[in-house]
């Protein structure tokens, strides 16, 4: 459904995309991962025809999306990163507008609005104005506007940023059901656990390049290894002999298949440096450890909740 090849885009001297290749088949969810500034939003904008690439190919269902953006747009559903709803009109009127833009009318439109509103918990809010919605409700409306017309390619750019737990769960359920219905979904996020929950294929974007792609389990098997991460007050001491060691400022990271045992052994061997130990964190094999293995850095996001943190 979506084919991207050698896509490049720069803003002045800043390279946003540096030869990106991607594919999303119908019914497939692609988790587009990367920290802020990795190029996710630029990529989504180019697919929608909002920005022009410097070079490269973008095809949606075999149609060149750069040269013929107008032909492609009826098949796209876009929920940009920043919430965009019309505050002066009601939830229903917001949905009516986007439904009508995509050719829905009359009963078909009304029934689709009911369907989507029910799925996203918006049914009791249909007569409320945008100004009267909470942040989470606005986020749900924002997403509902993107999928009312049953797009064949759904582009969700960080759809759960700032969302409450209920909104996040509703959105994840909906994304799964849309993919089950045959939609290709590009799910851009920097919340790694969401992609694992969706069991999506993953493209890991770093500085405008796809540094890894594939199924979550495959990537974890290929790249991830558990680690113990120790943070010190000041430079870390020598902790060799427990596994491969990486240093990053006040943090020392020891890769190990048995991280709990490694943590215990390291702490016993610290001696007087134990008084400078601030925290010990066990990082289990996950997408986060894939990122760590590929970039040498911890992932910036809300993934910390995944790790077990032991205060020193």
């Amino acid at each position: 459904m979506l084919k991207v090849r050698s896509l490049r885009k720069s803003y002045g001297n800043v390279v946003a995309l540096d030869g990106v290749d991607l594919d999303i088949a119908p019914g497939q969810i692609l988790g587009l991962l990367g920290p802020n500034g990795a190029g996710k939003t630029t990529l989504v904008s180019i697919v929608c025809g909002l920005r022009r690439p410097d070079s490269g190919l973008v095809e949606v269902d075999g149609v060149d999306a750069v040269a013929h953006a107008h032909a492609v747009r009826p098949h796209l559903g876009l929920a940009p990163q920043e919430v965009g709803v019309y505050p002066l009109v009601t939830v229903r009127e917001n949905l009516v507008f986007f439904g009508e833009l995509h050719g829905l009318r009359g009963r078909a439109l009304a029934s689709r609005i009911d369907e989507v509103a029910h799925a996203l918990g918006l049914a009791p809010l249909l007569s409320r104005r945008g100004t009267e919605l909470s942040g989470g409700e606005r986020r749900r409306l924002h997403t509902a506007m993107a999928l009312l017309h049953r797009p064949r390619l759904l582009l969700l750019d960080e759809p759960t940023a700032g969302a409450d737990v209920r909104t996040r769960n509703d959105l994840l359920d909906l994304v799964r059901s849309l993919a089950a219905g045959g939609a290709a979904v590009c799910y851009s996020t920097h919340y790694l656990p969401e992609v694992e929950t969706l069991n999506a294929r993953v493209a890991l974007l770093e500085s405008g390049r796809v540094i890894a792609s594939g199924e979550v389990a495959t990537l974890i098997a290929a790249h991830a290894r558990a680690a113990v991460e120790l943070t010190f007050d000041g430079p870390p001491p020598d902790v060799n002999g427990h596994g491969p060691v990486e240093r990053d400022g006040n943090v020392v990271r020891i890769r190990s298949d048995r991280p709990a045992e490694a943590a215990a052994a390291v702490m016993q061997s610290l001696g007087p440096d134990a008084s400078r130990l601030q925290s010990v964190e066990i990082v289990h094999p996950s997408l986060e450890s894939v990122y760590l293995a590929l970039t040498g850095r911890r992932y910036e996001g809300e993934q910390a909740e995944e790790a077990e943190i032991v205060s020193a």
């Binding site: 929608c48 025809g49 909002l50 876009l78 920043e82 965009g84 019309y86």
Partner: peptide, 14 residues
């Protein structure tokens, strides 16, 4: 201001 301009541009409307 409402962040709807790009949504409108990304719609089928020319």
């Amino acid at each position: 201001g409402w962040r709807t301009w790009d949504r409108l541009r990304a719609s089928p409307a020319s």
